[in-house]
């Protein structure tokens, strides 16, 4: 592993990290991913702006490459950050322009229609992994949405799930109220984490986790307009795929 890192670093040090063509290709892909925000007419300018900034900092960028990732991935990370800077700077000017229309998918159905479900499921998986208490969030959200507990998630949350009879505790009947769900979940927390939390604390924590998930799904510059309802639908798709 160390060998790979060292060899990547050495290759980078010996010359410019990217050729002009490579840089153009990477920048193009980054800009395309922000197509929902950058007006069509501005995309070429944004791309050129990104490349200009990249080239002006090329030496530092090359120096900071430690070889811990592939150079393309590093390139994406750098260009993405530059692109976000350009968008923040230009956004106001674009919004003032009479023709500017960001795709405002405010309804759940528009959100789901406009975006590929498969890609969104993959994105949700990533959002959940990166959150604090990722496994707990997945398990608790499943229970909140009254989905049957799955061993693969429950076991990741608690290795002693069999002894603690978590599968039974997490099994939520369809008829029960949200309040009763939080009661069940607080019992689970108290058993697994040996705490003494009340259902209110669990409710606040879970709401916070769902807000974080929604915020991260929507991304910067309003990539999508997820809300609690559409999060539930997406989560169900995600959960079924696992």
């Amino acid at each position: 592993m160390l060998g790979i890192i060292k060899s990547r670093k050495k290759a980078a040090d010996s010359k410019n990290l990217f050729s002009e063509q490579e840089l153009l290709t990477l920048a193009d892909k980054v800009v395309q991913r922000y197509a929902y925000t950058i007006p069509q007419a501005e995309r070429e300018d944004v791309k050129m702006s990104m490349i200009e900034k990249f080239l002006s900092q090329q030496d530092q960028i090359t120096e900071k490459f430690e070889g811990k990732s592939g150079k393309n991935t590093y390139g994406y990370a750098v260009l993405n950050r530059i692109c976000c800077g350009v968008i923040r700077k230009e956004m106001k000017r674009w919004q003032n322009h009479i023709d500017y229309q960001q795709d405002d998918s405010s309804s759940e159905q528009n959100t789901l229609d406009a975006l590929l479900i498969k890609d969104e499921i993959r994105l949700l998986a990533k959002v959940l992994i990166l959150m604090n208490d990722a496994h707990k969030s997945t398990v608790f959200m499943a229970s909140y949405y009254k989905l049957s507990p799955k061993e693969q998630f429950v076991s990741e949350y608690d290795l002693n799930y069999i002894e603690n009879k978590l599968l039974e505790l997490l099994h939520i009947e369809t008829g029960i109220s949200k309040g009763e769900i939080y009661n069940c979940l607080s019992k689970v927390v108290n058993v697994v984490e040996r705490k003494d939390v009340k259902s209110d604390a669990v409710r606040m924590w879970l709401n916070k986790q769902m807000e974080i998930a929604i915020s991260r799904l929507n991304g910067p510059f309003k990539r999508a307009s997820y809300d609690k309802e559409s999060l539930q639908v997406l989560f169900e798709y995600f959960y079924m795929e696992q």
Partner: peptide, 27 residues
């Protein structure tokens, strides 16, 4: 886990990688 901005960046770059034809980062 704590920073939405960095988490979004990581997700975004990860997505780019996965659709990138050159994801097999050859050195």
């Amino acid at each position: 886990a704590e920073c939405d901005e960095c988490a979004n960046e990581v997700q975004f770059v990860s997505e780019l990688n996965q659709v990138d034809d050159a994801f097999i980062n050859t050195t």
